[in-house]
Design a binder for these strands. Structure first.
Lengths: 337, 337
DNA sequence: CTGAAAGCGCTTACAG
DNA sequence: CTGAAAGCGCTTACAG
């Protein structure tokens, strides 16, 4: 038995006025008599009247809800970005509905359809790792729901995006290793087909070139994004007798494996080999030695994405000028370098 | 310019029937003629008609949304529990609205009020660390919104709860250390005023007693929940010359500090001192050595909390029999023991 | 200054 | 088998 909440009509009846009057009084309309107004406001307050957002939503054709779609809320990047979004959306009366694709493109499609069905006023999304088309996002736009991407963005043009400068981040990381006196720097990239692997590679290459250091393709290794693969990749380099004094890895998870491999071979970090990752994960300080990394401003990225949504919510999602916002990364220097 | 979505009325007009007929046809009512029905369904499909949940919600006095309130979605425990909730709620047509208290009681109060104002059909919550009363939850219940707690639950009786058996988890951890041959086991508890510190202490004590091991109060240390404090606490024990060969800490974060302190003093883990934590954090395998821990079934806890909500959604939140569900923990054995 | 009416998108008794 | 009407909770032109 759900107890019914107080409605305008309840208040109107108790005071023998019309719901219109109550409605106006509660919005402090100047056209209501001071006395009536006071009476109504007092009663509404004491009854703890709260307008029903479903009714409002129906009326305004707005749900005041934005759908946020991320690979996993467990990823620090994602949860930090979500916090950033909430921080700005809250202030504008929006709630956030969060979905996880769990890196599955199929799940992503289902969620986008559900969000559209739920009549969210917009969608802020970061793509699942498993590949696929973007029809579902175009579908949302066709239905009048603006879409803003962040972090993992698609390569189609008709949506706004918030990203970091991955190339520059990679340059920062490699420059840092060079400044620490390293000359033979390996790059452990992500999977070969991922754009991010290539973009960060460009940065790696540029940094080396800028310092007139040779680029040795033997020091470029592709592997999956995880600890085990980082571990294997590093062991393999050692086994093959490759010479290197620095490692830049595409993310911190991979570095955790790299550090384990180096430790196993009694290679001193950072003296023999310095290591730097990407993402500034919360656990970086737990690693041994604590890991230097490139920090992405996830919170700010979330804020920015939310702001873009706010600015675009009244646009025609099928016909507007999308914008791309690029935020800066930051070097976090710890014991591993 | 938001493009309007298709409504029943649109379809009705196009087919020259009433909206009632369209509505019935779409729910496959038997009282609609086969031909009319087919026509309507076909058109609705081709137009990609989706019923407006706001209208439905207004009608049914339900929003089909449940509010989830957690300290931080960045906590692995929280994000895993949320995934569990989504898994069961999805199937029942519910969406989830997630809020973070960020461990602040004040934020928690604000969020609960907002959720109630948003007309969520229920609230599933884990408490913020900062202390305070529970008036806001009672307020939600008074407003007809059922509340289910999980993990960090309040000590009042009028709400259902899903928790783990913390005492038993502690017993499992300490038993494990004892089985590994340890006899002088320290317990690094959380802050002294927290119930969880006391409950897990009871388990610690019971395990020692069951094995006829003495209880040495000098090996009981209270400290804040973080790496730095774990580090300090362990260093202090060493500096004071306390003798111990095992450490059970209230959580894994604290253990990260403990391991660092032991490493600094060249104390071999697990040979000289074995270490076990609580929570089975994802980064446990990144620690050196990898950390044994007690795993809480967070995903299942989330599922269970969601199921309880479903079973109670039609109850009178002010007058029903709350239930408490207790789930089992699991020992995860790694290198630190 | 206040109220009656229409309408947001839907469902469902009540008629026919 | 189909439709007109009322209603969910609200707002807002339109009257007076």
């Amino acid at each position: 038995m759900k107890s019914r909440q107080i409605t305008l009509k309840d208040i109107a009846k108790m005071l023998n006025v019309s719901t219109s009057t109550v409605s106006r009084a509660l919005k402090d309309s100047h056209e209501i008599g001071a006395e009536t107004k006071k009476q109504i406001i007092d009663l509404a307050t004491s009854l703890d009247y709260i307008p029903n957002p479903l009714a409002l939503g129906l009326l305004k054709n707005r749900s005041f809800t934005v759908g946020v779609l991320v690979p996993k809320i467990g990823y620090h990047y994602n949860s930090a970005a979500i916090s950033g979004m909430e921080e700005v959306l809250d202030r504008h009366g929006y709630s956030v509905m969060i979905c996880q694709s769990n890196e599955s493109h199929d799940q992503e499609v289902v969620h986008v359809k559900n969000l559209v069905a739920s009549r969210v006023d917009g969608i802020i999304a970061s793509l699942a790792q498993s590949a696929g088309d973007y029809d579902h996002f175009m579908y949302a736009q066709k239905k009048g729901v603006p879409v803003v991407f962040f972090d993992r963005v698609p390569d189609y043009e008709k949506a706004s995006k918030v990203i970091i400068d991955n190339e520059k981040g990679a340059i920062t990381a490699v420059n840092h290793l060079i400044e620490r006196g390293k000359k033979r720097i390996a790059y452990i990239a992500g999977p070969k087909n991922l754009r991010i692997s290539a973009i960060r590679y460009r940065g790696y290459e540029k940094a080396l070139k800028n310092h007139n250091l040779p680029i040795d393709k033997k020091l470029l290794i592709y592997c999956e994004f995880n600890q085990e693969m980082g571990y294997q990749a590093c062991k393999k380099m050692i086994a093959e007798g490759k010479s290197f004094d620095g490692i830049f890895a595409v993310n911190d998870r991979t570095c955790a494996g790299v550090l384990a491999a180096l430790r196993e071979h009694n290679i001193a970090v950072p003296d023999d080999v310095a290591v730097i990752g990407f993402n500034d994960e919360p656990y970086d300080i737990f690693l041994y030695p604590s890991l230097s990394s490139i920090k992405q401003p996830a919170f700010e990225i979330g804020q920015e994405a939310a702001r873009i949504f706010l600015s675009e919510r009244d646009f025609d999602p099928e016909n507007f000028t999308p914008q791309t916002k690029i935020l800066e990364t930051e070097l976090i220097w710890r014991a591993s370098t």
